[in-house]
Write a protein that binds this DNA or RNA. Sequence first.
DNA 1: AAAAGATGCAACCGCTCCCCG
DNA 2: CCGGGGAGCGGTTGCATCTTT
Length: 328
Amino acid sequence: MKRPRGGRGGGGEQPAVRKGPWAPEEDEVLMRHVQEHGPREWSSIRSKGLLPRTGKSCRLRWVNKLRPDLKTGCKFSAEEERVVIDLQAQFGNKWAKIATYLHGRTDNDVKNFWSTRQKRLARLLRAPMPRRRPGGKQSSSGASSSHAHELPAPKNPCLDMIPFQEPMTTHHVGESSGSSSQDPNTTNHRAVAHFPGAYGLPPPPPPPTPLPIMHAGAEQGSSSAAPATALLLPYGGDAGYPVAGGVDPLVFVDPAASPEPLEVVPPGPFFRLDDDYVHAGRAMHRDVCGVRFDDLPPEAFDFFELPNLPAWPPPFPPPPPPSQHDQL
DNA sequence: AAAAGATGCAACCGCTCCCCG
DNA sequence: CCGGGGAGCGGTTGCATCTTT
């Protein structure tokens, strides 16, 4: 796989401590230690001379790579993405806390996912018209601010009608999609208003005070971002639509043309990664108008992010207790 | 086919928290 | 109550791989 890195590993002033990529033999030693002592006493690994690694490094390796219940090599599913987005809005950058809600994901995974998403967002906010080349992945040049205005006319009306047409608003299913003055209470709590269903919980009480409407750009502090429109309708929950497996598919509506849903993407299994679904979904949305969560312009998600709500306790239940694996 | 740019991810660092003596 | 050590967390870095031109 990856070669050992020269720049950072190899140690320096403390040659006794090894840094950088882990060798399979080191993993074996670490695994053995965990089997015997459990996932603790990390510092004793070095003090006993088992490995020339710091306790922190050992713990990190175990948590991020060696834990038996990890989903390794799998991208975040659409539902996992939503969980992260919802919980980030609620908890902030408490990655470890968020990760406890996602089985098989580590705080590092969540952190990396979010960081990637933020970078994408930052790029897209500088580039007013995200474009997707037919048959290709999201064009990296499409995100280039220096070329954004030179891009050709949209070829896919479904995708290109979504952003940057009107001032940003969000709508719920069950709300009037033609109304431009929506209730911020419900608008800003789309995520939590729907998500708890995945846990079988009643929706949280409404927040005590009206909340401001979220605008793209606020997150990045970018005042130069072009006005954007993306009406994301959670397709389920409030309106009584079926929400299979705790997932409400996304529906995109052209606010100017029709309140009718343009496309409904079937949800994936909750917390179950299915590469076939992922790839099929990707292939689909390039040829048709289907849109998968992963491929949405990130600013679309940001409409749903919550402002600080000090007086409103988190509606999420505490995560399930650590599994046997975690205790070992 | 090659170069350039974008993306994903593993791992380190510094700080904070918590427990124990 | 206080200090020290270990553990945990969030931020950041840098390389490998992938995608686009």
